[in-house]
Design a protein around this nucleic acid. Structure first.
Lengths: 149, 149
DNA sequence: GTTGAAAAAATATTGAG
DNA sequence: CTCAATATTTTTTCAAC
């Protein structure tokens, strides 16, 4: 799908606040809200907009520790490994990467004890597991609302 | 702020679809929409809900390559480095981590050329830079809408 | 805290340029 | 594609339990 500058403006607004009323988006980009409605619908259908998500404070819901985890997986066992990783509660992202690690995870856990359980009981025991490195996130300095559009 | 099971149900719904009408949330959790409205407002005020963001397909807006980047920063130059990193367009996350790297970035770029420019011209030239490792994301296997609540 | 009901505002739809 | 007008829904407010 081709996006013009109007579409991009709408995306910028929805990326920073997904609950902005169409009427206000319309005011800001100087078009009617029917047009905004139409364009948003088309971008949703085309998969340009993949969803709308509330960002929840991790600590408020009991997640005190986050980490990035690098994983080496045995050759030929990648699919097995991924399947098991997807089942682990607390694993919020699974990326396949080049470089030192085959897989990079982002995980959330209640505390360090629970992170240890996650890593030792679940990750290290899965089939195809080779080795891992856990990088605990001491703090997130900065996080954009999404992409620079 | 204390969250009860009702709050958590609301968070789950908004995390998976931030534009779900309060009236529908009310139906699903079997309460009035006035209650949902009240609770959402309080969670917003308390910082439990940090925002609502549209998820935009990176390729659709011209970002063909993403990477995780590990960085070593010279002792005592951390603040300088972070300040510069925040200014680099395409850097979408900056985490301070334990382990092999001091800082982990998530970056988005149009293509590998543009990623090279980002890394060589911007990141590698910044003050306090020591060394880095770029892990190109070949694919994202799985990404939850947020935290398991 | 919760609710139903009223008022205000927003979204969805339609038809035409 | 865009718009104005209309119909439908939702959000917001508020008195009352």
């Amino acid at each position: 799908m081709e996006l013009d500058e109007t579409d991009r403006k709408i995306l910028r607004i929805l990326q920073s606040d997904a609950r902005t009323p169409f009427s206000e988006i319309a005011r800001r980009i100087d078009m009617s809200s029917a047009t905004v409605h139409d364009r948003v619908g088309r971008m949703e259908d085309a998969g340009v907009i993949e969803g709308y998500h509330a960002k929840v404070n991790a600590k408020a819901v009991g997640y005190g520790v986050s980490a990035l985890v690098g994983l080496r997986v045995e050759q030929g066992r990648e699919e097995d490994a991924l399947e098991q990783l997807r089942e682990i509660e607390g694993v919020t992202e699974i990326h396949l990467t080049t470089g030192e690690w085959d897989v990079m995870l982002k995980v959330a856990a209640a505390d360090t004890d629970s992170l240890r359980d996650l890593m030792f009981d679940r990750v290290a025991n899965m089939e195809g597991f080779s080795r891992s490195q856990t990088m605990i996130i001491l703090g997130t300095d900065y996080e954009t609302d999404g992409l620079p559009i």
